[in-house]
Design a protein around this nucleic acid. Structure first.
Lengths: 199, 199
DNA sequence: TTTTTTGTGTACTATTTCGTATAAAAATAG
DNA sequence: CTATTTTTATACGAAATAGTACACAAAAAA
C-alpha cells in the first residue's frame, strides 16, 4: 500500500530516520545534539531534514513521542495478564530497566533524563514532558483502581498517591541507571518500591 | 584576614562567581550554557574564567558541588531535631520543594535534572552524580538506621531499601517540578511517599 | 516529449563558540 | 623608581552550527 505520488521518491524511511534520531537524542540530550549529528545518524542531509521534519525541536518532540509510544506498549504488555498489579508493575519495571541499561552504557529514559534539562528553555518540550507524566500517572491509577474495585486491593487504598509513587520509582530508576548505578541497586529499588507500595 | 599577596588583586568573589554559575547551569543545563553566558553571569571575561576555574566542565562540577553542599546543609537542618524520621524527611522534602520551585519557573534540582543529561558524555560528571546519589542514600539510611536502633522503627524495617525509596521520591519531585507540576501534585507525592515508606 | 512536482545534495553566509595570544593594569618586593 | 607578579581586558583565529539558496535528480502528469 505505498501511496504513489508525484515527484522524486523519498530515499529515507520515516520510521527508521526517527528511530535514529531517538538514539542520538537519547545519548546526548537535546542541546548537545547538532543537526549534523542527526543528519549523519538519520542518513539524510540537513536540507532534507528541515524539509521532512522541521527544526531540531520538532524532531526532538517526535523522538519523545516515538519513545513514549514504545514504553506505553511495554506497559500495556506487562500489566495486562498480570494477576496482581504488583506483578504487572514488577514486570514493567524490569522491562524498563532492560531498556534503560541497554547498550554499552546505561542511558536511562530519554524523556526523564534529557527532556527535563531542555524543559526550562523550551516550553513545548516542558508541556510534552508534563503531559507524559500525567498520562502515566493516569494509566497506573487506572490499573490500581481496577484492582481495588475487583477486591485485589483494600477499599481505602490510595490509588492516586500510590500511582504517583509508582512513577516516582520509575523516575529514580531512570536517573540512577544513567548515573551508572549497579543492576543490583536498581533491582533492589524495584523490590523495596513494590514492597512499600503494596504493604 | 585578607591574605595579602603580590600582583593585581582579583576583582571577582569566588563564592559569588560560583553562585552565579550555579544559576546559569541550573536553568540551561551543561551543554546549553556557553562560556559567554557564564562570563556575563559571573561578571568576568572568558580569559579570567579560564585562569580562575578552568573549562566549562570544571566549573559545572564545582557548581554541582556548591549546590549539593547547600542541599546537604538543608538535610541536616531538617533532620536534626526531628522527633521521628518521618517528620525530618517531610521537612526536608518541603524545603527541597521550595528550592525546586523557586524563581519564575520551577527548575527542579540542578544535579538530578541537568547532570543526568551530561552524564552520558562526561564521565567525571557521571561519577560525581553517582557519588552524590550514593551519599544521599547513605545519609538517609543513617537516619533510618538510628531511628530503628532507638526503637522508633520496627526491628525488621528495611533501612537500605526505604532509604533508596526516600531518594526516589526526591528524584521525582525534582523532575516533576521542572516539568511544571502543580504544588498540590508535588505535595501529594510527599504525603503518599511518606505514608508508604513508614506504614 | 515536455511540464510539474517533490526530494536530494552541494555550497554559501552568518552566527556562535571556544580557546588563547597579547597588552595593559594594579598590586608588592627590592 | 624599577622589577616582578598576578589579574584584567581586548582581540584574534579556528571550528562548529544553523539556516537557506540554488542546482540537480527522479518520479508522475499532460
Amino acid at each position: 500500500m505505498v501511496r504513489r505520488t508525484r515527484g522524486r521518491p523519498r530515499q529515507y524511511d520515516e520510521v527508521a530516520a526517527l528511530q535514529a534520531a531517538v538514539q542520538v537524542f537519547w545519548l546526548h540530550g537535546f542541546s548537545a545534539t547538532s543537526l549534523d549529528d542527526l543528519a549523519v545518524a538519520m542518513g539524510m542531509n540537513r536540507p532534507s531534514i528541515y524539509r521532512a521534519f522541521g527544526d531540531k525541536e520538532v524532531i526532538y518532540r517526535r523522538a519523545m513521542e516515538a519513545f513514549v509510544r514504545e514504553m506505553d506498549a511495554t506497559f500495556e504488555r506487562c500489566v495486562c495478564g498480570a494477576a496482581h498489579p504488583r506483578d504487572g508493575l514488577r514486570r514493567f519495571y524490569m522491562e524498563a530497566l532492560a531498556t534503560y541499561t541497554a547498550g554499552d552504557r546505561a542511558k536511562g529514559c530519554l524523556v526523564m533524563c534529557t527532556a527535563a534539562t531542555a524543559a526550562a528553555d523550551y516550553s513545548d518540550i516542558r508541556d510534552d514532558l508534563l503531559q507524559i507524566m500525567q498520562r502515566l500517572d493516569g494509566k497506573i491509577a487506572e490499573l490500581l483502581g481496577a484492582a481495588r474495585d475487583s477486591g485485589l486491593l483494600p477499599e481505602r487504598f490510595d490509588v492516586q498517591g500510590r500511582a504517583a509513587l509508582a512513577q516516582a520509582v520509575l523516575h529514580s530508576l531512570s536517573l540512577r541507571a544513567r548515573a551508572g548505578s549497579s543492576a543490583e541497586t536498581l533491582e533492589q529499588l524495584v523490590r523495596s518500591g513494590l514492597e512499600a507500595m503494596f504493604s
